[in-house]
Amino acid sequence: MYESRGEELISRKRFAMRLLKHVLVALALVIFSLLLGILGYLWIEADAHWHDVTLNMAMIASGIGPIMLPQTVKGKIFLAVYGAYISVVFAAVLGVVVAPILHRVLHVFHLDDDDSKA
């Protein structure tokens, strides 16, 4: 997927496209996770309104915390599990977005090392 140490640095346009692909993958993962939380919460807490649940899941995903607390034990367990899951998703999304940037920076440093040896 990425160029190896001995290869040339890719153009800025190709790098921008690579970064865009990573951002789209991260966005898809976030949207999937939010939908999973919304549907799960609506299934467990049947009397909740979809717009309130959407706000609640977005606040949990952003790290602020729930706006409305669940009324059932199942709902409380679901929010606890979802909070742990969304923390892992946050770390994964951060890694997906930062990976091409970090790779390019490290690749530039390695290119400088190769030039000085020659």
Rank of each mutant, 00 (worst) to 15 (best):
M1R: 09
S4F: 07
R5G: 04
R5M: 08
R5H: 03
R5Q: 04
R5I: 14
G6M: 04
L9H: 01
I10C: 02
R12H: 07
K13P: 02
K13T: 14
K13F: 10
R14V: 10
R14A: 12
M17P: 00
M17I: 15
R18N: 03
R18T: 06
L19M: 09
L19N: 03
K21N: 08
K21L: 11
L24T: 07
V25K: 07
L29Q: 01
V30P: 00
V30E: 01
I31M: 01
F32S: 05
S33G: 10
S33V: 04
L34S: 06
L34G: 02
L34I: 13
L36P: 04
G37R: 02
W43K: 12
W43E: 11
W43F: 15
I44M: 08
A46G: 05
D47W: 10
A48W: 15
H49F: 09
W50G: 00
H51V: 12
H51S: 14
D52S: 10
D52K: 06
L55N: 05
L55K: 07
M57P: 02
A58H: 09
M59F: 15
M59A: 15
S62N: 08
I64W: 11
I64D: 03
P66N: 14
P66W: 11
M68I: 15
Q71P: 02
Q71H: 13
V73S: 09
V73Q: 10
G75L: 06
V81A: 13
Y82E: 00
G83Y: 05
A84L: 15
A84V: 14
A84K: 09
A84W: 13
Y85H: 08
I86D: 00
I86K: 00
S87Y: 11
V88L: 15
V89L: 06
F90C: 09
F90W: 10
A91I: 12
A91F: 15
A92W: 07
L94C: 12
V96T: 13
V96K: 08
V96N: 03
V96S: 06
V96R: 06
V97F: 00
V98W: 07
V98Q: 06
A99S: 14
A99M: 13
A99W: 13
P100S: 02
P100I: 00
P100G: 03
P100C: 02
P100M: 04
P100K: 02
V105I: 15
H107T: 03
V108W: 01
F109C: 07
H110L: 12
L111A: 12
D112P: 00
D112L: 14
D114N: 10
D114I: 14
D114Q: 14
D114H: 12
S116N: 09
S116G: 04
S116L: 15
K117L: 15
